[in-house]
Amino acid sequence: MIRAVNLTKSYHRHKHVVPVLQGIDLELQPGEFLSIVGASGSGKSTLLHVLGTLDKADSGMIFFGDERIDQLSSKERDRYRNEKFGFIFQFYHLLPELSAMENVMMPGLIGSSLFSWWQKRKQIKKRATELLERVGLGHRLHHKPREMSGGEMQRTAIARALIASPKVLFADEPTGNLDAEAADEIIRLLREINREERVTILMVTHNLELARLSDRVVKMSSGKFSPLSVNAPPLGYQPLNDIPHLCLPAPQV
């Protein structure tokens, strides 16, 4: 589904060059739920942003299916983010002025002109309501983010990420700001969505417990996937052999 080849990226701070990604190769199978774990500063969030076209790598290639997406014009990248990708962030990132419903509809609003919105509005509203009900917020449709709990906000964000029926969901520390119970709920929700809607999920987290629930876990440190196995496949992931119970087989597609 998504394939990255030899991605590198570094930040420049004054005269110092801080390497963030140092030659990342990754392949994400359709319908896979992949977790990237690693300490903060290991470059996992940057990798997620680069793959999600929110940020650009210095070198390397990213493919979505057969199309190379890292060199697309900003307009086309906007379209990718609007239609094919969904994002979930640690701090929920809901628009505070809008209600849960409006937040969920936002990608639909962004993707349509005044006229096409008029045509599609019922459909989008229906889908937004369904999604909010799906994430268990059927009773919170018209609440503003500040009237909701962290878990509720994150579930709203998930509903928003799903409104355009994306192919890939990027989750950047989706549980980082939640207590254990709410975090567990969110991961289970993602798992369900992944299974039911066949949405590919790439999750970045530092919580190994939660990463366990995904299909596959890779570990990142210092901008590289940690070589934990001698028989590491050339393109792809590194099973976390040092944490045996996290080693899950890659799904056969």
Partner: peptide, 12 residues
Amino acid sequence: RDIGILKSLGAS
């Protein structure tokens, strides 16, 4: 931050 959110949702 809202601007970032909008852009992540595909706003140009």
